[in-house]
Amino acid sequence: MAKISRKHRSTGRRSPLATVALLAIGLLTTGGAYALATTTATAESQAAAANEQLIEEGKKLFAANCASCHGLNLEGSKEGPALVGVGALAVDFQVGTGRMPMAFQGPQAARKAPQFTQDQIDAMAAYVASSGPGPALPDERFLEATGDAAKGAELFRINCAMCHNVAGAGGALTEGKWAPQLKGLDARYIYGAMVTGPQAMPVFNDLNISPEEKRDIITYLDYVSENPSVGGFDLGSLGPVSEGLFIWIFGLGGLVAITVWLTARSN
């Protein structure tokens, strides 16, 4: 009985059909996998090639415009710091706000009209980023002014106002450096400044101020730039100094002119 049953089992196992089926499945999976693998590989190599091209272009632009100060291999020189690992965001901020290429050696590289198109900036950013890991451009959603303005205002007062003034009107630092005024800035540069901490500005990394909180600050600064001063002309948001000058020159000055006129007529 047992023999019969064993034989029966073995015949079922060696069925030629099953072998064919197995073979077919094996072939299909490996072939499919191979095909799949080869297509992704081409896509990857295409992207890599494109990136290579961008980096190459960036490298050229960099060599022509920046290497005199930062060195041909980002190693830095007497004129400028090494840029290895500063990240794409630092380049985007520095070149996008026109600070780089630096025009002249002063206490601080000043903001000016940008000298490059966004594509060229992206190329140089890619080149610098390829030298080592550094902060990259943030996710778009952190750049939208849709956060909590009140929370942003509070964060701004605590972290930024001592240099940039509460109303973002800017202020003086030591040795001729200054914190610029922050009206009407592009959100990406606000984000970039916080993450990369240009020059005398400290770095606010994601542990200090989370990306969501950075968005709140951007929202607040956007509110201040977008909404006109409610009380009338703001005299540059410079506070009591401009108010005092105004009252002396135009307020009292105007009234003195009127008194001179009034008494001159009666004489």
Partner: peptide, 19 residues
């Protein structure tokens, strides 16, 4: 406008504004 106190925020001993 003069003394736009809404720009300055409520008093809190830690922050000090430039200017």
């Amino acid at each position: 406008t003069i003394n736009p106190i809404w720009n300055y925020g409520p008093y809190d001993p830690s922050p000090v504004s430039a200017g």
